[in-house]
């Protein structure tokens, strides 16, 4: 289901940078694809690269911001919070992520992760190194550290992400209760 990823990218660009940037990225993608109308453009990862270029930002930062943005979308945040009772638990169970994704959307390809934990450091080793995913994941972890109220240092290494946890209870994390609200918005909201 590439549609879900594309839509997340589209909404991320729209809510962060506005309709104007989105439109120019769409136009550019349409021209690049040889389409006569930007109506049919899919906002794939290439759109993020184009947006990064226009904004004179490194691509990696763009992908990382997408990951962090996802953690601020309530339904996505809730799904992530279901995956760990505290920040450390969340990190240790990130190797379940492909399995969880597969349960819901079997066609969604999420790269395999191996978790390698020592005392205060958790290393997430990517099974099949993929730069884009790696930065999205780093952003996701950054966002969830905020959500749990943890203080940590996130370093993107060659084929791995290293998280040094300084203080798991540095700040009061955001509220989370299992039952959630009965009124839930769409999986991605503007």
């Amino acid at each position: 289901m590439n549609g879900l990823i594309n839509r997340a990218i589209e909404e991320f660009l729209r809510s962060t940078y506005g309709e104007e940037l989105l439109q120019s990225v769409a136009d550019e993608s349409a021209v690049a694809a040889g389409l006569s109308s930007p109506l049919w453009v899919d906002f794939g990862p290439a759109a993020l690269n184009r947006a990064a270029f226009r904004l004179a930002k490194p691509s990696s930062e763009m992908f990382e911001d997408l990951g962090a943005w996802m953690t601020r979308i309530e339904p996505i945040r809730r799904l992530l919070r279901f995956s760990g009772r505290d920040f450390r638990d969340f990190l240790l169970r990130l190797d379940e992520l492909p399995g969880r994704a597969h349960l819901v959307v079997p066609t969604l390809k999420v790269p395999r992760l191996e978790v390698d934990a020592t005392d205060q450091t958790v290393r997430l080793v990517m099974g099949d190194p993929d730069q884009d995913w790696q930065f999205v994941l780093a952003g996701l972890i950054r966002g969830m550290a905020d959500d749990y109220g943890a203080l940590c240092l996130i370093t993107v290494e060659e084929g791995a992400i290293r998280v040094d946890i300084w203080d798991e209870q540095f700040a009061e994390g955001r509220m989370f209760c299992l039952q959630g609200s009965t009124l839930q918005g769409p999986a991605v909201q503007a």
Binding site: M1, G3, L4, R7, P75, I76, R78, L79, F82, S83, R100, L103, V104, V105, L178, G180, Q184, P186, A187, V188
Partner: peptide, 17 residues
């Protein structure tokens, strides 16, 4: 239990989309 809740909310999100 957690997986069931996860699946429930994830499905709802995907269906909405």
């Amino acid at each position: 239990a957690m997986e069931l809740l996860f699946l429930h909310e994830a499905n709802r999100g995907v269906l909405t989309e």
